[in-house]
């Protein structure tokens, strides 16, 4: 394997690792807090919101937006580290 290819493989590995972490959070806030554990979380309240219901109709969406911007930042840094930035 050439140096060129080694670099590309290492970049791809780091990228995939980020994806796993970010998608785990994506799954936890929507399918976890908003659906699977909704009933348990609904025992707690923030203001007028039951917590499970809040995640399903508000919280998960906020987290989605934040996740994409974190991804943008991480990838911009990664591109620079490997010299792939444009």
């Amino acid at each position: 394997m050439s140096d060129h290819q080694k670099k590309a493989t290492a970049y791809w590995k780091e990228n995939v690792r980020y994806l796993f972490i970010l998608l785990a959070i994506w799954f936890l806030v929507s399918f976890g807090a908003g659906i699977l554990f909704k009933d348990a979380l609904n025992a707690f309240k923030i203001g007028g919101f039951k917590v499970g219901f809040w995640f399903a109709q508000q919280g998960s969406i906020y987290v989605f937006v934040i996740l994409i911007f974190i991804y943008v930042r991480l990838m911009n840094k990664l591109d620079e580290k490997y010299g792939y930035h444009e």
Partner: peptide, 20 residues
């Protein structure tokens, strides 16, 4: 509450789109 499927479904897809 059942309406949440549209809220999460039609926004969560953008995470997949952006990352994958």
């Amino acid at each position: 509450y059942d309406g949440s499927v549209y809220l999460m479904g039609w926004t969560g897809g953008y995470v997949l789109l952006a990352l994958l």
